[in-house]
Design a protein around this nucleic acid. Structure first.
Lengths: 114, 114
DNA sequence: CGCATTACTTACATTTTTGATAGTACCTAA
DNA sequence: TTAGGTACTATCAAAAATGTAAGTAATGCG
């Protein structure tokens, strides 16, 4: 939970407000977000498929990151009224528009890390 | 200071190791790094110029972020043996190769934030 | 009833990041 | 001798992010 009025939060908001780069980096920069986005860029996936394909992620972190990206409109959450439950995640149009950026981030990383 | 063997650190290393995107995002994703990179993309700057042009940044955070980017090879630190001291920062070749990515991050952010 | 399945929650602990504040080193010029 | 300018460090505190472990809800099936 963020405090509304901490310097930390205010600085963050200020930067995101007048720096598009900061905004984008916050949207895709959580610990597990790249791993999730990378998979969803290849197609719709169930919660359990994400969980099982991302090594070492905890359910708590997975859900947190999914919720943030849903709130930011990057992904859609599709719930089927079944038992046992079935939930699928997919990139939204906004999320899809990130694809070329994700690829260039990935390429640059592969090229430049040691 | 990071603990060598915390799960947190190990997860981070693991992700950066086999996900170029994670590596890149760590390299440019610190709180003040976008603001710094944005300025240096327009040319060499002195420490004091960076400090004075970035609202609300503390010297501690500025130095921390500069050091990290220097360590990652994104920027060069040029020290002139003068008194009072003069230190300039500029993008390295590696840093320069990020420019198109920084621009697309910035554009996407400007287009998509609310 | 009791169990299995799926997609989560909750409460708490640890680690990491960020911020506040004060201090340092160096020389030069007054 | 003291003040000034520049680029920092050091110490401590607060806040945020991440991790651990256990629990929940719904329902069909045996």
């Amino acid at each position: 939970m963020r405090k509304e009025n901490s310097t930390n939060t205010l600085n963050k908001q200020h930067l995101e407000k007048d720096c598009g780069m900061s905004y984008t980096l916050t949207a895709i920069g959580g610990r597990w977000k790249p791993a999730i986005l990378w998979r969803l860029a290849r197609g719709k996936m169930r919660y359990s498929e994400l969980r099982d394909s991302i090594a070492n992620v905890t359910e708590r972190m997975l859900v947190l990151q999914l919720r943030e990206m849903e709130k930011d409109g990057l992904i859609n959450r599709i719930v089927y009224a079944e038992v046992p439950p079935r939930v699928e995640y997919e990139l939204s149009a906004k999320g899809n528009s990130l694809k070329p950026i994700l690829e260039s981030l990935s390429d640059w990383g592969d090229k430049n890390r040691i």
